[in-house]
């Protein structure tokens, strides 16, 4: 069902459209079973950033208070995009990997299931 409205039309742009990011984009990513970090993270980044650079220089340091971060091997991760199985190429850029504005990525790392092995 569409929105009911007064007047002739009801048509507004999306508040989070990519053109509001000056050439950058938003990406969303979560490291599953590391819930001491409560939610997926949000980043504003350029589309030509290499995925490996992002993981090693931006994403992993954000988990600096989690002991698992020293042991993680992202290449052994099980990856999803938009909750569907997906395999990134670590040496390609976001854009080349098909990661678009507001994409939601999740990674699980079998063997590293958080503190006490219970997802924390």
């Amino acid at each position: 069902m569409a929105v009911k409205f007064i007047g002739d039309s009801y048509d507004f742009p999306c508040a989070n459209r990519q053109e509001n990011y000056g050439g950058d984009m938003n990406i969303y990513i979560v490291w599953d079973h590391h819930l001491i970090y409560c939610a997926p993270n949000t980043y504003r980044l350029p589309p030509n950033m290499k995925f490996r650079d992002f993981l090693e220089q931006v994403f992993a340091p954000d988990y600096f208070q989690h002991p698992d971060v020293e042991k993680v091997d992202w290449e052994k991760g099980v990856w999803q995009m938009e909750n569907q199985p997906w395999q990134p190429d670590f040496d390609k850029t976001f854009a080349e990997n098909g990661i678009a504005h507001n994409s939601f990525i999740r990674v699980a790392t079998p063997g590293l299931e958080g503190l006490h092995g219970v997802g924390n």
Partner: peptide
Amino acid sequence: PLMNCCLVSEYKGTKHQ
């Protein structure tokens, strides 16, 4: 209870979580 739930819907070419 150990997996974040994040669902996606696309509207006007923009994804929303």
